[in-house]
Design a protein around this nucleic acid. Structure first.
Length: 507
RNA sequence: GGGCCUGUAGCUCCAACUGGCAGAGCAGCGGACUUUUAAUCCGAAGCGUGUGGGUUCGAGUCCCACCGGGCCCA
């Protein structure tokens, strides 16, 4: 699409666009494009105020509306327009008798997609449609490109993701999802703030990406000649702040993980992490129960959802089950950490898990959980007491040092939150980091590196603390009944497309 | 990274039989119409099929490579 053909300043090889460009240039020439516009009412507010009045009613009330013209139905000496603003749609009743010949034909010159402002009386048509009978209107901005099919809209998922602006203007579901996401984030923030949590921002650019098991994006700082990684978690910085005395702290932040893209993974995504001094993982379970239910109530009006066609009740309390017990239940065998390791390995093999010789009982059971048990969970469930070897930042379980006080919240087969009683013993933390470093040296490039400064922070004393991380995108998916993460991220990561053909070429 | 599927007009479409002149609806253009709701009716247009090769008398249809996308698996 990079041909060299020169064209007229107003020309375009697509006649649909050429005609719009000509009108745009005419509007520019006449100097009629406003820089601002005073709107008196949103479409949605007009519906709220007048929807119950009778067909044929004239209200005598003049209003000024503004938005995108989505459709025009021309009846000869009468026309109907559909104006869409951020709140919804309102019909424009356009009469030649009211506007006069010249203005009426100027209205018909408008194209669907144009932004206009219009003033007139609120009335209800004979058929009962709330309308503004316009007495004047102004073109605010010209749409040079045509809208998608007015009935079928824009369906192609690739086009919808790449041209989200078009998706949003024509697909109400997409607008609703974007608005619900905003409500979820705002309500999450309010819930934590109301409990005395302080919101902070910690660095994205780090010399070492830590706090999670993941591969980071790498970049370079030119002035400092320094290789940097984008953060894969906010965990260790937030706990440093608890050491510093910010006893309840949280961050809603973009996290970057250099991994593939699929239905539940985008390389950049939003995570909420929160830490509460003097709390343990039991307190955090209660906190999460309350917050999930409250956010659902606020964002979608109920904590009893329909997800992928099935009822899903987020009303507390959630089920609590130890990971080992859950695996025993699913495999229908009486297993525990004391089961002979050979037996566990054989069991793993049966579930398609190839157990590495270095794995202990905890790791083997954990791997079986991941492939066989997690996906069987539907109702919100706290899966608790993860093995020590897969939980390098969690405090040892008070009753069994082979386990940690860690849980994940699993709903509809996926993980929504990860939380623990935070490991606050610097000696233990160093040992865990060293175990990770050994795994790293053995080729596991997702294992945690040692963060010496973090250990130093622990040496100043981290109080007993409970912490949590919530995958915000997935939570939004749950609440909006979306099965792909790209539907809840406005601009998901994609390979670049070929440059779109320019609508106007240089002469 | 592997497998399968997919890309036709601005948008939508299981239009195009085993290769044989590339279609429709919507949008747009011209016309009719004073209560439409995807308005309706009449008329005239618009795509050479993601890109590049190849096979063939002839390719949207077959083959190869590449680009974008989807689903599943690692």
């Amino acid at each position: 699409m990079t041909d060299e053909t020169p064209s007229e300043p107003t020309g375009h090889d697509d006649p649909l666009i050429a005609a719009r460009i000509a009108k745009h240039r005419e509007a520019l020439r006449s100097g009629n494009y406003p820089y601002r516009f005073d709107r008196s009412d949103l479409a949605g507010d007009l519906h709220d105020r007048f929807d119950d009045i009778d067909p044929g009613t004239e209200t005598g009330i003049d209003v000024t509306v503004a938005g995108r013209l989505m459709n025009v139905r021309d009846m000869g000496r009468l026309a109907f327009g559909v104006l869409q603003d951020v709140s919804g749609r309102i019909q424009l009743f356009v009469s030649k008798a009211v506007l006069g010949d010249e203005e009426f034909s100027r209205f018909l010159e408008l194209d669907s997609g144009d932004w206009i402002g219009a003033t007139g009386e609120v009335m209800v048509t004979k058929k009962g449609e709330l309308s503004v009978r316009i007495a004047s209107f102004v073109l605010l901005s010209k749409a040079l490109r045509p809208l998608p099919d007015k009935w079928h809209g824009l369906k192609d998922v690739e086009a919808r993701s790449r041209r989200r602006y078009v998706d949003l203007m024509v697909n109400e579901e997409s607008r609703k999802t974007a608005l619900t996401r905003a409500k979820v984030i705002s309500e999450l923030r309010r819930q934590f703030e109301d409990r005395g949590f302080i919101e902070v921002e910690t660095p994205v650019l780090l010399t070492q990406a830590t706090g999670a098991t993941a591969r980071p994006f790498e970049t370079h700082h030119n002035a400092l000649d320094l290789d940097l990684s984008l953060r894969i978690a906010t965990e260790l910085f937030l706990k440093r702040l608890v050491v510093g005395g910010i006893e309840r702290v949280f961050e809603i932040g973009r996290i970057f993980r250099n991994e593939g893209v699929d239905a539940t993974h985008n390389p950049e995504f939003t995570m909420l992490e929160a830490y509460q001094a003097l709390a343990d993982y039991g307190d955090i379970m209660e906190l999460i129960e309350e917050i999930f239910a409250a956010v659902a109530e606020t964002a979608v009006g109920t904590s009893v959802l329909t997800y992928q066609g099935r009822m899903l009740d987020l009303t507390p309390p959630f089920r609590r089950v130890r990971l080992v017990d859950l695996v025993a239940e699913v495999v229908d065998r009486d297993i525990s950490l004391d089961t002979p390791i050979d037996e566990l390995r054989a069991l793993a093999t049966r579930y398609g898990v190839e157990a590495d010789p270095s794995w202990g009982a905890g790791r083997v059971i954990f791997e079986i959980y991941e492939v066989a048990a997690e996906s069987t969970i539907w109702k919100p469930t706290f899966v608790t007491d993860y093995p020590k070897e897969v939980s390098p930042l969690s405090r040892l379980h008070r009753d069994d040092p082979r386990l940690t006080e860690r849980f994940e919240l699993v709903i509809a087969g996926s993980e929504y939150a990860n939380a623990f009683s935070e490991l606050n013993d610097p000696f233990d933390q160093r040992e865990r980091f060293e175990a990770q470093a050994a795994a790293r040296a053995a080729g596991d490039d997702e294992a945690h590196p040692i963060d010496e400064d973090y250990i130093r922070a622990l040496e100043y004393g981290l109080p007993p603390t409970g912490g949590l991380g919530i995958g915000v995108d997935r939570f939004v998916m749950l609440l909006t009944d979306r099965k792909h993460i790209r539907e809840v991220i406005l601009f998901p990561t994609m390979r670049p497309e070929a440059a779109p053909p320019p609508v106007v070429r240089s002469p």
